[in-house]
Simulated assay, not measured.
Amino acid sequence: MNWEIVERELELRTSRSSGAGGQHVNKTESRVELVLDVAASQGLSRRERDNIRFHLGNRLDGQDRLSVTDQSDRSQHTNRKRALSAMRQLLERGIRNPPKKRTAGAFKANSRKRLEKKKRRGEVKSGRGRVRW
């Protein structure tokens, strides 16, 4: 991932923050939303895009866009920094390779135990036959 290119591709949106804050909230746009179009990003390789779709598929909208919002502070500048940090962490977590699939199979020790148990059970059953004098 080339963060410099990805950072330039981010779309920055600001809006008025919700919640408490009185008149300050009503007149400043301190809420920050960062949006990245994953499908069109030049800073991500094809493999990284696929990994992001795998790991962060529930965070993507219908057009393969990933968004992060922050409105925790009164300052737009601080919220922008936090949103950038959150986006970077999210992308770094998303570009890791998916876990390898393991083939299901019995452990050797379990197979051996099962066969021994079967053999013992067979011996018990063979002793139940007709008694010959």
Results as ranks from 00 to 15, higher is better:
105 G>C: 03
125 K>S: 12
40 A>P: 09
94 G>Y: 06
79 N>R: 00
34 L>Q: 03
20 A>Y: 03
89 Q>R: 09
110 N>P: 00
7 E>L: 04
110 N>L: 09
125 K>C: 02
103 T>L: 01
74 R>I: 13
87 M>V: 15
49 R>I: 15
74 R>N: 05
106 A>R: 03
70 D>W: 06
67 S>H: 08
67 S>Y: 05
48 E>G: 04
28 T>M: 01
40 A>S: 07
13 R>H: 13
69 T>L: 02
41 S>C: 14
100 K>S: 13
89 Q>K: 08
102 R>F: 08
24 H>N: 14
46 R>M: 01
21 G>K: 00
83 A>T: 14
117 K>L: 10
131 V>Y: 07
27 K>D: 11
114 R>T: 14
95 I>E: 07
128 R>C: 06
93 R>Q: 12
117 K>D: 15
39 A>I: 12
107 F>I: 07
68 V>C: 04
53 R>N: 05
103 T>N: 00
83 A>M: 07
14 T>F: 02
126 S>H: 09
62 G>D: 11
19 G>H: 01
80 R>I: 06
74 R>L: 13
8 R>M: 09
47 R>I: 11
67 S>W: 08
66 L>M: 07
65 R>G: 05
111 S>P: 00
47 R>Y: 06
57 G>Q: 00
28 T>K: 00
71 Q>Y: 09
108 K>L: 09
107 F>A: 10
34 L>W: 02
91 L>H: 05
15 S>T: 14
77 H>S: 10
109 A>I: 13
28 T>I: 11
35 V>P: 02
24 H>F: 14
129 G>E: 10
119 K>A: 15
133 W>S: 10
95 I>M: 06
75 S>R: 05
74 R>Y: 11
1 M>R: 01
100 K>Q: 13
63 Q>S: 08
68 V>Y: 06
51 N>A: 05
67 S>K: 09
122 G>K: 04
6 V>A: 00
108 K>P: 08
12 L>D: 06
7 E>K: 14
50 D>I: 00
65 R>I: 13
35 V>E: 00
26 N>K: 08
94 G>E: 09
87 M>K: 02
101 K>Q: 13
1 M>E: 05
51 N>S: 04
22 G>V: 12
17 S>D: 11
118 K>S: 09
52 I>N: 03
53 R>A: 07
47 R>L: 13
52 I>A: 02
96 R>S: 07
106 A>M: 07
91 L>W: 10
101 K>W: 09
127 G>M: 07
31 R>H: 11
64 D>M: 05
113 K>I: 15
37 D>M: 03
45 S>F: 06
102 R>S: 12
64 D>G: 02
86 A>D: 14
108 K>V: 15
43 G>N: 05
17 S>V: 08
65 R>W: 09
81 K>V: 14
57 G>F: 04
63 Q>C: 01
116 E>C: 03
95 I>P: 00
113 K>W: 11
107 F>K: 01
99 P>V: 04
121 R>G: 07
117 K>Y: 14
119 K>T: 12
101 K>R: 11
49 R>W: 04
76 Q>G: 12
15 S>G: 13
98 P>W: 03
84 L>G: 01
8 R>T: 15
133 W>C: 04
75 S>K: 05
85 S>V: 03
